[in-house]
Write a protein that binds this DNA or RNA. Structure first.
Length: 715
DNA sequence: TATCCTCGAGTTCC
DNA sequence: CTCGAGGATA
């Protein structure tokens, strides 16, 4: 250790560590962006060693962004999960020019803008890479998080620091700034990387996107550092203060801060200009040097963006205009039938492997029975039917550049002896009858849990990410345990240790399993004995009960017993021969379900069916007895309208009805269409009629539009 | 009753 | 990611 370090005071150490962090940060940036590093490797190492020495003497002073945790640090085990403070949503898609005019129109309608009123959009290439969120606090990069499922991503901070386009520090920025953008690899760098990979171990990447994704998710940052990744900034998440008041202004600001922004970003005054720019970008696509898969349009005015807000998974103010998908022709070698957890029989095409969009595809979906069929039993042509036969030449594409689909068939190349595909009417897995309900597109196996395929798929669903999400017990393990007979129903998972704890030995003999993994698994399972009510409901795999409905139900029912009791009562109400009739709605037990937003007759019936099935019910009971169910927290919004039921009536002048509803809901209010005893607030615009009158009669608080806006202001 | 929007379910490859 | 269908709404 150098003498001066041994003599250093704490204050001096703080200052020196700060100086070293900046120097090393600059050196890193220079190293990764330029051919010529500013300092030699030896000098770099010396600085790094000095930093480590000071940290060794003053461990308490170690900075959160310490350079010693960066490139060259020991690999961490896995990536920390981080919840995005503002969700990273995906974009709606457009494929045709008409979708763009429609996009413009629907925005105008939502905002109440006339067709001739000015409305400006940004248009920029959609980079085909992976999204990354960079969190800067007081101008220092503290976190880099992948998109993940949009709500939660993985921290790849150490890896992101090795990317030259990502600054370590920023000058004169808001205290909190989250920059979002795309990590990608250029064609040139991709080719060079694959050449190197070929020499090293022969494992090459299928396309630049996969190479970028693989590189960013390296546990050892030194490997990422050796991969030439780049970054374009195009958006932002949480901010302590706005960057600008337009989209373009914000992008320009990011560019000034030192981020790369895409040079093909333009302002467009309407659909005509947007489409022109789309063609321009499309023409340049091949020469850009990196992959793009379309053009993104965004409403330029950030005030309007805020008014437009979000649908459940996409913003209303942006859309991705995709380039046409790459197509390929190949031979259909066979058609297999898969049976899903609900019993749905899905046809899957087995193809002669073919490259589509940089990936070799050998399976593709064939949608359903009608899609394959040419003519029905009476010889009449089926609408939408393509008459696809084994042995045919078929056209394949990857929908959204992901899911392979059979798009078309070349009838001219059909061999004379090709036979129409006969869709099975018996489940291929369990021989139960497979029936198709009137008006339904899918045929379903009626075997229920007798059908091994349904049973195992249900189990996979139970352990899936949105349900119990047990670490170490994914789809594969669930299937394996099911086949072993160790897990026959969800409750068995929680009895696994008790019943097969001694089976540790057996586990150990299985490939990839040791003492440790079994212990870890039991710990992970134990952790999920405490489970959110909505996750439990979703995990049960009741038909029509998805993630959203599970939340709706757990908002309404306090606990499992309350729900089960309500379902039981509904089950004893009049038969449901004709679910459209009023008799059902009038029965109080059904009414309780139908009154829940998002719950209708179909789901109610489905709940009754599941709970009334003795075996299924017993299986639920066995499971619930082993769990501690955590009720869903009420939307903890402290806005003045949280939990209130609001009715809008009359003409709204400052916002459209859809906008008013969305804003109210975002603040935790429930928006209803008619005034009832449950209504808390009526917002009446000019021309309000019977609803305002009824509200007055019932003594419900009535506000005009300004009164409402004043009420929610600041929330 | 028709239309719009959102959700559920099933899909592949890495 | 897409299709089909359920649920809300005009």
């Amino acid at each position: 250790m150098a003498d001066d370090i041994a003599k250093m005071t704490e204050a001096e150490a703080v200052e020196e560590l700060s100086r070293l962090a900046i120097l090393l940060g600059q050196a890193n940036t220079a190293y990764h962006t330029e051919d010529q590093p500013e300092i030699s490797d030896a000098e770099y190492d010396a600085l790094k060693r000095r930093n480590a020495d000071i940290e060794a003497r003053f461990p308490a002073l170690k900075r959160t962004d310490s350079p010693s945790d960066q490139v060259g640090a020991a690999p961490s085990d896995g990536f920390q999960k981080i919840t995005h403070s503002v969700p990273m949503l995906s974009l709606g898609n457009a494929f045709e020019d008409a979708d763009i005019t429609e996009f413009d129109k629907s925005i105008r309608k939502y905002l109440g803008l006339a067709a001739e009123a000015p409305l400006t959009f940004t248009a920029e290439p959609k980079i085909d890479g992976l999204s990354l969120a960079l969190r800067y606090e007081n101008g220092r990069l503290v976190h880099a998080v992948t998109r993940g499922d949009g709500a939660t991503g993985e921290s790849v901070t150490q890896n992101a620091r090795t990317i030259g386009d990502i600054p370590e520090t920023l000058d004169s920025v808001p205290d909190l700034l989250e920059v979002r953008g795309e990590v990608y690899m250029s064609h040139e760098d991709f080719a060079a990387l694959n050449a190197r990979q070929t020499e090293a171990d022969g494992k090459t990447f299928a396309n630049p996107r996969n190479a970028a994704a693989g590189s960013l998710r390296q546990l050892d940052p030194t490997i990422t550092a050796a991969r030439p990744l780049r970054f374009f900034a195009y958006a932002w998440g949480s901010l302590s203060e706005p960057l600008a008041d337009t989209q373009k202004g914000a992008i320009d600001r990011l560019a000034k801060l030192g981020f790369q922004t895409n040079p093909l970003t333009r302002l467009c005054d309407g659909p005509a200009q947007m489409l022109t720019h789309y063609r321009t970008i499309e023409e340049q696509r091949a020469t850009l040097g990196y992959d793009i898969d379309g053009v993104v349009y965004k409403v330029n005015d950030l005030g309007l963006q805020a008014r437009l807000g979000f649908r459940s998974t996409t913003p209303r103010w942006a859309i991705a205009h995709k380039f046409p998908a790459e197509l390929a022709w190949t031979r259909l070698e066979g058609i297999d039938i898969q049976v899903g957890r609900t019993g749905a029989l899905s046809p899957v095409a087995r193809l002669q492997p073919v490259t589509v969009g940089g990936v070799v595809v050998s399976n593709a979906t064939l949608h359903n029975e009608d899609y394959i069929a040419g003519r029905d039993a009476n010889g009449a042509p089926i609408r939408g039917g393509k008459d696809i036969r084994v042995g045919d030449w078929v056209q394949v594409y990857r929908a959204g550049d992901v899911i392979p689909k059979v798009a078309d068939v070349d009838l001219s190349k059909r061999s004379a002896d090709a036979k129409p595909f006969v869709f099975p009417e018996i489940c291929p897995e369990c021989d139960s009858a497979a029936v198709r309900e009137e008006g339904d597109a899918v045929r379903r196996c009626t075997g229920g849990l007798i059908c091994p395929s349904q049973a195992v798929e249900k189990m996979k669903h139970f352990v899936s990410r949105a349900a119990f999400d047990i670490e170490g017990l994914g789809a594969k393990q669930a299937e394996q345990f099911f086949e072993d007979g160790w897990i026959k129903e969800p409750a068995d998972i929680f009895l696994l240790e008790e019943n097969y704890g001694s089976g540790l030995q057996q586990l150990k003999n299985r490939e990839g399993w040791g003492d440790k993994s079994a212990a870890n698994l039991f710990a992970a399972i134990a952790e999920k004995r405490r489970i959110d009510f909505n996750r439990l409901l979703f995990g049960l795999g009741i038909r029509h009960l998805g993630e959203a409905a599970a939340k709706d139900l757990s908002h309404h029912f306090d606990d499992w017993a309350a729900l089960a009791d309500a379902v039981d009562r509904a089950a004893t109400e009049p038969a449901t021969e004709d679910p459209g009739k009023a008799a059902l709605a009038e029965s109080p037990s059904w009414a309780e379900f139908l009154a829940i937003d998002g719950v209708g007759r179909t789901l109610t019936q489905s709940l009754i069916q599941a709970f009334s099935n003795a075996e299924e019910r017993a299986s639920f009971d066995r499971l619930v007895a082993l769990l501690e169910i955590v009720p869903l927290e009420a939307a903890t919004s402290d806005s003045p309208v949280a939990g209130k039921t609001v009715v809008f009536t009359g003409t709204l002048e400052k916002m459209t009805r859809a906008e008013a509803k969305a804003r109210a809901e975002a603040l935790g209010a429930k928006v209803s269409g008619s005034v009832s005893a449950k209504t808390d607030i009526v917002v009446a615009g000019p021309g309000a009629g019977s609803k305002a009158k009824k509200a007055a009669e019932m003594g419900v608080e009535t506000l005009d539009e300004d009164g409402w806006l004043a009420l929610i202001e600041g929330a």
